[in-house]
Design a protein around this nucleic acid. Structure first.
Length: 728
DNA sequence: GTAGGGTTAG
């Protein structure tokens, strides 16, 4: 302190400002830190006593331009001026804890304790809040403060104990929080509220709802804060019955219907699928606030009514970060990654700074787009904006890189992470699975378990998927068994679906059917769909008909069922049956999802439909395609018209096959690349057999590595072979 | 102590 203030004081002496206002006036008005420090030094020298309000301003100024030297300064002031139970100490800790400098609060707390300065019932909650906010804190700090609070005799102090509950809950230690809560002698509404919210923050909505029940039976009457928390939990847990009960309770109790409750009700009904109820509540709301509007449009976005969502979004006068993020996420989840990225750019042009949640949606959009250059751009943005050490973001980056075809980049991000969680491992396992590297996926799983990370249900979906795409039948069976026997995870539809896929692909159709019949719950469309896919691969008409029937019983509009069934018939040249299925589809208004491919060149995404002529370089593309076909025919390529599933003349079929969208994308890629380089193509449906052979030959003849992402996996074509080993 | 946006799979 001396070294900082003395030169300034000296400067002051040498060059005193001529019409100096009286010292007491300056004490009352100064706000800038250097100025305050000068006055501080003067007062210290003059032996005057410092007014508390001045010290308080001095501290505020120090916190507003934080650095380690200003922290030292704060401490020296505090240590110099403290009294045994100083409100100033508490205020400092609170300010530090709120000012997004939680590690400093902890450091300050430690040094104050060492200096023997009073820590009392008011300082402990501030320290706890800081501990809970620190990203890397384990519960050790909370445990320490918790122990200290007991030692100091605050175990019956509702204020302190509520803070302990809140701190454990904020770290996700809901069991510890609940333990403290249960031992509290006096529980006020705030204590209930903190515990309820703690459950909700950790995603334990059902526990929250149970606790709410308990609260009501113990005669505690909820207030609006608690009701809002509970309604939100009902929405997230999709517990419509309780949500409606709470709604009635609010109406019956004449509780004032404030904006909080109104927005929460809208979001509860929307989350429970009652969009019309949500809409009429929203219509009644005047004025409509940002929260309610965001809840409303996000609900439409989740229902796939993205245009309705966008209309509400566009009508909003003020849009905060949550609002932008919700719309970006809405596009990302609705398979419109380009729109999501476009909106992200617009948001930034308006000067709105993204947070971690925004970035997660943007990264996910980029993953779905599958464009590597854009992905790298997003990664650079993440690094430049200080998101690079956030675990959830790094996890999302692993997924993004693997879905953009660069397993190497995904591995790099993975290897740099210390403190990997189950999502980190699962994302990497999924990466290997997507690229057909089943052995690596299993090896990574073993390593994960060896490092003491518990797999979850999603981990097993990825693992089984990896086995299925590599044909590792025996390993798949073993993993499925260990999931139940060793890890005690109940297999769900998704797991059975992967197993059916695994067995079905390996031509074990009967075993797959038996597995479905042995399921402890009714199979859904996805499970039957996996079996139908296998019937198509192996041309099993009889079983295929049966499975398609089951599928259509569950969902008469399932386009996949019709398409696969007609493919099965087409493969066997049963054109009458094909026509009949197509007629049925037409009558029912079921549309086949249109196939398209896209390719990224210099950060620009080019999209192609089958036979698309809308590209500006269309004539070059078709010219190139003709030459490519000629060259490939020299090395034995002949269009495999089995892939054409409509009854056409042979020549027409040949043309149809040659117009597949991925071939157009490849032609554009060839025009824009040189020998030895890599061409990356993505496709929304699965690649057909003819395009697969075409890509293999093209990779050899034109000396390009071709990385093609289809609906379910990656194919890396190089030197005439594909990484999938033709097993897909 | 309160409402709206989130990463792995599908």
């Amino acid at each position: 302190m001396e070294s900082v203030t003395q030169p300034l004081a000296a400067a002051l002496r040498q060059n005193p400002p001529p019409p100096t206002p009286p010292l007491h006036h300056r004490i009352l008005t100064a706000t800038a830190l250097p100025h305050l420090k000068q006055i501080h030094a003067k007062i210290v020298r003059s032996g005057l006593r410092l007014p508390a309000s001045f010290v308080s301003r001095l501290l505020d100024a120090s916190y507003s331009s934080p650095s380690s030297s200003s922290l030292d300064y704060v401490l020296s002031v505090l240590i110099h001026y403290h009294t045994s139970s100083s409100p100033l100490v508490n205020r400092s800790l609170c300010t530090l804890a709120r000012a997004a400098h939680p590690p400093w609060t902890l450091a300050t707390y430690g040094r104050l304790r060492r200096a023997g300065i009073g820590i009392d019932r008011f300082s402990l909650p501030a320290v706890l809040r800081a501990a809970a906010k620190c990203r890397d804190t384990t519960s050790a700090v909370v445990r320490e403060v918790h122990g200290l609070s007991a030692k100091m005799g605050f175990d019956a102090d509702a204020f302190v104990q509520t803070a302990v509950v809140g701190a454990y809950a904020a770290l996700g230690q809901t069991a510890d929080a609940r333990g403290v809560f249960d031992r509290m002698i006096h529980r006020d509404l705030v204590a209930w509220s903190v515990m309820l919210d703690g459950y909700c923050q950790s995603g334990c909505y059902n526990e929250a709802l149970l606790l709410f029940d308990e609260m009501r039976s113990s005669g505690v009457v909820p207030d609006t804060v608690i009701l809002a928390t509970i309604l939100s939990a009902c929405g997230r847990a999709k517990n419509l019955a309780l949500g409606e009960a709470v709604h009635s309770f609010i109406l019956e109790s004449n509780i004032s219907f404030d904006a909080y409750l109104h927005s929460t009700l809208i979001s509860m009904y929307a989350n429970c699928g009652l969009i019309d109820t949500a809409q009429s509540l929203y219509d009644e709301m005047l004025p409509k606030n940002q929260v309610a509007s965001t809840a409303m449009f996000f609900a439409y976005a989740k229902l796939g009514q993205i245009e309705t969502a966008r209309n509400i979004f566009d009508q909003m006068a003020d849009k905060d970060l949550v609002c932008w993020t919700a719309m970006i996420s809405g596009y990302a989840e609705s398979d419109q990654p380009n729109a999501a990225l476009k909106l992200f750019n617009e948001m930034q042009l308006l000067g709105v700074k993204p947070d971690e949640i925004t970035m997660l949606s943007v990264i996910s959009a980029c993953a779905n787009l599958g464009a590597l250059d854009q992905a790298k751009g997003v990664h650079i943005f993440v690094n430049r904006n200080g998101f690079d050490h956030v675990l959830s973001i790094r996890n999302a980056l692993i997924d993004m890189y693997s879905k953009c075809g660069s397993l190497a980049d995904a591995c790099r991000v993975f290897n740099e992470i210390t403190g990997k969680n189950v999502i980190t491992w699962t994302s990497m396992i999924t990466g290997f699975a997507l690229h057909g590297n089943g052995r690596s996926a299993i090896a990574l799983f073993d390593q994960m378990v060896a490092e003491g990370i518990m797999p979850n249900g999603v981990t097993f979906i990825s693992l089984l998927y990896a086995c299925s795409h590599t044909g590792l039948v025996e390993e798949g069976r073993r993993i499925f068994q260990s999931m139940v026997d060793v890890y005690n995870i109940e297999p769900k539809h998704e797991h059975y679906s992967c197993m059916v896929d695994l067995l079905g692909r390996a031509k074990l159709l009967q075993e797959a059917l038996e597995l479905i019949e042995s399921m402890p719950f009714a199979p859904n469309v996805v499970v039957w769909g996996s079996l139908l896919g296998a019937c198509k691969i192996h041309g099993d008409i009889e079983l295929g008909e049966l499975v398609a029937k089951k599928l259509l019983e569950l969902n008469p509009d399932h386009d996949g069922a019709y398409v696969l069934l007609s493919n099965i018939y087409a493969k066997a040249s049963r054109w009458d049956d094909v026509r009949q299925v197509r007629k049925l589809m037409k009558n029912k208004g079921v549309l086949k999802e249109a196939g398209f491919s896209w390719i990224e060149l210099n950060g620009h995404v080019h999209e192609f439909m089958m036979g698309d002529k809308s590209h500006p370089r269309s004539s070059d593309i078709y010219g190139t395609l003709d030459e490519v076909v000629k060259e490939l025919e020299l090395v034995g390529y002949s269009p495999d018209t089995k892939a054409v599933l409509v009854d056409l003349e042979e020549e027409e079929k040949r043309e149809a096959v040659l117009l597949h969208s991925e071939k157009l994308a490849l032609s554009l890629g060839l025009i824009n690349s040189t020998r030895g380089s890599c061409i990356r193509i993505a496709k929304n449906l699965r690649i057909c057999e003819d395009c697969h052979s075409f890509m293999k030959l093209a990779s050899k003849v034109f000396e390009r590595e071709i990385v093609l992402r289809d609906r379910t996996r990656f194919h890396h074509f190089k030197d005439g072979v594909c990484s999938c080993g033709d097993y897909w």
